[in-house]
Amino acid sequence: MLIPNVYAETLVQNLEGGMDIEITHPGEIVVGREGIISILVKNNGWEEKQDISFEFLVSEIRGLNVEPKNIIIDKLAQGGSYGENINLYITDNANPGIHFLNIKYSQVLVSNNKTPQEPFFYDIAIPITIKADPNVTIYTKTPESIFANAEFPIEVGVISEDIDITDVRIKIISPKDIEFRGETSHTFSKIQKNTPIGITSRIITPTDEVNTEYKIPFEIIVQYTDDVGEQKEDSQTVSVTLRPRTFMELTTDGGIWIGSFFIAPYVSLGTIIGIPAGAIISLLVRRKASPKKRSKKKKV
C-alpha cells in the first residue's frame, strides 16, 4: 500500500534497459515516529532483468532504522513489476534537519533474454526531513481595527500537520473590558492529521468611546494530547487596534453608524440610500421650522 500523496513525496528514476523505479517516501517524519517507504519497480524494456537489488545505507544517518535493509528480486520479465514496503523508524536520538537516505541499486540485463550482462549499479538519494516535534499550527483572523459599542468576528483555525491529536481544547483569552458573544472555549475529541478545524466568536467592544488608538491583545491557547500520549500546549497572541469611531461606520452585521446615531441592520439600507441627501437635509430643516398659520378669508 502506497503512502497517500498528501503525506509523501515520490522519486522517479528511469534506468538502463527500460527499468523504471518509483520510490514514495515521507517528506517529513517526526522523532520517535514511524513511516513507510514504498518501492515499485517496472521492467518496461523488451529484455529480461535479474539479480535486482536495493541496499539501504542507514548507518549514514544517526537514529534512522530501516527494515528490511536489503531487497532482492531474482527475476523480472518484460512488462513485469514488483512492489514492496520498507518500514522506517526515527529514534529519539536522531538529529533534526534534512538528511539523505542513500540506496545502492543494481541489476543484470539478460541480453536477448538469454545472456546475462555485466551488473549495472546506480546510486539513489532520498531526501527526508527529520522534525523534533509535530507541528500544530494556529491561524487567527480578526478585523484590522475595531471601535466602541459594536460587534466584530474573530475566527480561529487549527491544523495538525504531522499527527492525529486528541482531547483538543481551544481557548480565546481577551482583556477584561472585552466581552464575547458565543463560546470562548471549544473542545474536540479528535482532530485528524492535516484536517483543519475552525471556530468563530464575536467580540463585543466597550460602550465608552475612546479618544486615541491602542492595541488590544487576544491570546489563543490550544491544549491537546499527541499520538504518543503526551499532553502539549501551543499558543498565539494577536493584537487588534481599538480606535475612535469615525463619522460613518459600517458594522459587520449590516448596521451603520452616522455620527452618534445607529441604524440597525434590519432597517433597509436601500431605503436610506434611495433618499437623496438633499431631501434628507430638507426634511430635517422643515422639522425644525415652525409651521405657518393660514390667514382666514373674510366673508364678503
Rank of each mutant, 00 (worst) to 15 (best):
L2W: 09
Y7V: 05
L11D: 06
Q13S: 10
N14M: 03
N14L: 07
L15W: 03
E16I: 07
E16F: 10
M19K: 02
D20Q: 03
E22P: 11
I23V: 08
T24M: 06
P26W: 07
E34N: 10
I39H: 06
L40A: 12
K42W: 03
K42S: 05
W46G: 06
I52S: 06
V58I: 10
V58Y: 06
E60M: 12
G63Q: 04
L64C: 04
V66Y: 01
V66R: 00
P68V: 00
L76C: 01
A77K: 10
A77N: 12
A77L: 11
Q78Y: 08
Q78H: 09
Y82I: 00
G83M: 08
N85F: 07
L88Q: 02
T91V: 10
P96W: 03
Y105W: 07
S106I: 00
V108D: 02
L109N: 02
L109S: 02
N112K: 11
K114A: 14
D123C: 04
A125L: 07
A125Y: 05
I128A: 03
T129Y: 12
N135W: 04
T137W: 09
Y139I: 15
K141H: 14
E144V: 11
I146S: 09
F152P: 09
P153Y: 09
I154G: 11
E155R: 12
V158S: 05
E161L: 12
E161A: 12
I163K: 03
I165Y: 03
T166C: 08
D167F: 01
R169Q: 10
I173K: 11
S174N: 04
K176P: 07
I178L: 05
I178R: 02
E179F: 08
F180Y: 06
S185Q: 14
K190L: 14
Q192N: 15
K193Q: 15
I199E: 05
R202D: 07
I203G: 10
I203H: 10
V210T: 04
E213S: 15
Y214H: 05
P217F: 01
P217I: 04
E219F: 00
Y224M: 00
V228P: 04
G229D: 07
E230S: 12
K232D: 07
K232R: 13
E233K: 12
S235R: 07
T237S: 01
P244C: 01
T246N: 09
F247W: 09
L250E: 15
T251N: 11
I256C: 13
S260D: 11
F262A: 11
I263E: 12
A264L: 10
I273F: 06
G274N: 13
I275L: 08
P276F: 00
P276D: 01
A277F: 00
G278F: 04
I281P: 01
L284F: 12
S290T: 14
S290C: 10
S295F: 11
K297L: 09
